[in-house]
Amino acid sequence: MKVKITPKAVLIPTLSLFLICLVVTAALALTNNITAKQIAANDQQSKEESMLTVCPGAKTFEEVIPDTMYKGLDDSGKTVGYAISTATQGYGGQVKVMTGIADGSIIAVDVFYNNDETPGLGKNTSNESFRDQYKGLNVNEDIVVSKDDASGNAQTVDAVTSATISSRAVTKAVNDACRLYNENVKGAE
């Protein structure tokens, strides 16, 4: 038995599918438009909180490099440090790190976005016990994850158990911040 396909039999399902796709696309665009401002505001707030975490004495910040480097100032306008935002690829996605630097050494590190990392593993790079390993390290020397250092001469941090890729991502972001500091601030202080 041969089935005859008519233009009407093809056109009606095609138009129906097109209209459904059009309505869903419009709904998604509208939702994105409504939430975009709030998402941007939440991201900015998270970034500002992170800047205060890594430059604890700062009351205000001046932008040195747009959306990347900020000079932290105390109440009298004296520079207390620099907050530098860097990002790199982790195991599950982007990892954003804020590094505080003053006088050639790291004040603090804050992992302010690692939502795509594995819960209970890579997300543990935001734990204080991991982040505190960077405190006091020299910005003139590369930092490596201890598993990657065969020489024993480099500044090292211990990886989070079962999260070496995420640990390397945070370490790379901190090294990137140190390079930005050395290129833009060192000698100007």
Score class of each variant (00 low, 15 high):
Asp116His: 13
Gly122Asp: 01
Lys135Asp: 05
Tyr134Gln: 05
Gly122Ala: 07
Arg131Gln: 14
Ile106Arg: 03
Val111Ala: 05
Lys123Trp: 13
Tyr134Pro: 00
Phe130Gly: 00
Asn140Thr: 11
Glu141Ser: 15
Gly122Gln: 07
Asn114Phe: 13
Glu141Asn: 13
Ser129Thr: 11
Gly120Tyr: 06
Ile107Asn: 15
Gly136Val: 04
Asp116Leu: 12
Phe112Trp: 14
Gln133Met: 08
Lys135Phe: 09
Leu137Trp: 07
Tyr134Ala: 03
Asn115Ser: 14
Val109Gly: 01
Pro119Arg: 10
Glu117Ala: 09
Ser126Arg: 13
Ile106Ala: 03
Val109Thr: 00
Ile106Asn: 06
Leu137Ser: 05
Asn138Ala: 12
Tyr134Gly: 02
Glu141Cys: 07
Ile107Lys: 15
Asp142Asn: 12
Asn124Thr: 00
Asn138Val: 10
Thr125Phe: 08
Asp110Ser: 10
Thr125Leu: 06
Asn124Phe: 09
Tyr113Ala: 13
Asp110Arg: 10
Ile107Pro: 09
Tyr113Arg: 15
Val111Glu: 01
Ile143Phe: 12
Lys135Pro: 00
Lys135Arg: 07
Asn124His: 10
Val109Asn: 00
Asn115Ile: 08
Asp142Tyr: 15
Asp110Glu: 12
Leu121Pro: 02
Thr125Ile: 09
Ile107Gln: 14
Asn140Tyr: 11
Leu121Phe: 11
Glu117Pro: 00
Asn124Lys: 08
Phe112Val: 00
Glu117Phe: 06
Ser126Trp: 10
Lys123Cys: 07
Ser129Gln: 08
Gln133Tyr: 06
Ile106Trp: 06
Gly136Met: 03
Gly120Gln: 03
Gly136Lys: 08
Ala108Arg: 10
Ala108Tyr: 13
Val109Met: 01
Gly120Pro: 00
Ile107Arg: 13
Asn138Tyr: 15
Leu137Met: 12
Ile143Thr: 08
Asn127Glu: 11
Thr125Gln: 02
Glu128Cys: 02
Pro119Met: 12
Phe112Lys: 05
Val139Thr: 10
Asn138Thr: 10
Tyr134Leu: 07
Gly122Ile: 00
Val111Ser: 02
Asn114Asp: 15
Phe130Arg: 03
Arg131Asp: 09
Phe112His: 13
Ala108Glu: 06
Lys135Ile: 04
Glu117Leu: 02
Thr118Cys: 05
Asp110Val: 01
Gly136Phe: 11
Asn140Trp: 12
Val139Ile: 03
Asp132Thr: 08
Leu121Met: 10
Asp132Gln: 09
Glu141Ile: 10
Gln133Cys: 02
Lys135Ala: 08
Asn114Val: 07
Thr125Val: 07
Asn127His: 09
Asp110Met: 05
Glu117Arg: 04
Thr118Asp: 02
Asp142Val: 04
Tyr134Met: 03
Glu141Trp: 13
Ala108Gly: 09
Ile143Cys: 08
Thr118Val: 06
Ile143Glu: 07
Val111Tyr: 14
Asn115Trp: 15
Glu117His: 05
Tyr113Ser: 15
Ser126Asn: 11
